[in-house]
């Protein structure tokens, strides 16, 4: 394609091609401290393209394609090209990854042990991981944690952190020196701003961790903590994993192993500070 960029995030290599220069320039800037794909061969190809040639110029609108595609994926305006690239990369992960059980969770690590935080969009998993990282935890990822069924270890996927709405200000306050992408107003998911993970998160992204705690956070409620029964945790994690079914036996072994190995806890929280205190209290009690 006309413009191209390759990058490796954790164990996964991407090649992103685009009909426009702008999204590629933004990716090059924000991912500049990341390595390229292993052996120069990307795991996944992503394409940002104009449906018709003239749509490169007239009301330019970015179609999302790649190795794996959803027919109903709606195009985005060119000024949201970075979002289009990130969505397309997420799509490859969700539909294409086979080596790891893909957990829709953010993850932070301390002393080789990881806390996984999972939940629906808006549960605050990105914000929580960012705030914990500001308190000395190693940031492993805000969207996907990659569980290796063979080892039981979880691998980092520290892509650009996708901050939404009020999460943007909270993360900026916690990480005043962080490099930020453009503020994308009025996207289908509200205001979005991408933050580059801290240098340590990128430098250590090839170091996996042993899962120690599985947290199901829920934002907007009075602080409360309750254990999640194993069967409920199992079902919620099968729903939070886009490739559980595709992995077959490995997925079953990986997930039942995880549920047996670590405590599962649901936390309701009214604000970031409470959530941090709740997670760290659970951690201390392990």
């Amino acid at each position: 394609m006309r413009h191209a960029f390759s990058v490796r995030i954790g164990p996964i290599g991407f090649r992103i091609g685009s009909d426009w220069r702008a999204p590629i320039a933004t990716l090059e800037t924000l991912y500049r401290n990341y390595p390229g794909p292993r052996d120069g061969v990307a795991d996944f190809t992503v394409r940002l393209f104009a449906r018709r040639p003239w749509r490169r110029f007239v009301r330019p609108s970015v179609e999302i394609g790649g190795d794996y595609m959803l027919p109903e994926a709606a195009p985005l305006p060119l000024r949201q090209g970075l979002l289009a690239a990130e969505m397309a990369m997420n799509l490859q992960m969700a539909l294409g990854v086979r080596r790891y059980l893909l957990l829709h969770a953010s993850a932070v690590e301390r002393d080789g042990h990881a806390v996984l935080m999972t939940g629906i969009s808006g549960a605050g998993k990105s914000t929580l991981a960012t705030l914990l990282a500001a308190r000395g935890w190693r940031f492993m990822g805000d969207e996907f944690a990659l569980l290796d069924p063979a080892t039981g270890l979880v691998h980092a996927f520290p892509r650009l952190i996708s901050l939404k709405n009020e999460g943007i200000a909270a993360a900026e306050a916690a990480w005043p020196a962080a490099r930020m992408g453009p503020l994308l107003r009025a996207t289908p998911k509200g205001d979005i701003r991408h933050m580059v993970p801290d240098a340590r998160a990128i430098a250590t992204m090839d170091t996996p961790a042993t899962p120690a705690l599985l947290v199901f956070p829920r934002y907007g409620f009075a602080a409360e903590t309750r254990p999640v029964p194993p069967a409920e945790a199992f079902v919620r994690m099968t729903q939070a994993s886009t490739n559980y079914v595709a992995l077959g036996e490995a997925g079953f072994r990986g997930l039942t192993g995880l549920i047996a190995q670590v405590p599962s806890v649901a936390i309701d929280y009214p604000d970031g500070a409470s959530a941090i205190a709740q997670v760290e209290a659970l951690w201390s009690a392990l």
Binding site: R38, D39, G40, V41, D43, R99, G248
Partner: peptide, 21 residues
């Protein structure tokens, strides 16, 4: 073949086996 290619093709074989089943 390069290790990265082998890993991708190993995954593809796994996926095909799953599809076969």
């Amino acid at each position: 073949m390069p290790a990265a290619v082998k890993a991708i093709l190993d995954d593809a074989r796994e996926a095909a086996e799953h599809g076969r089943r």
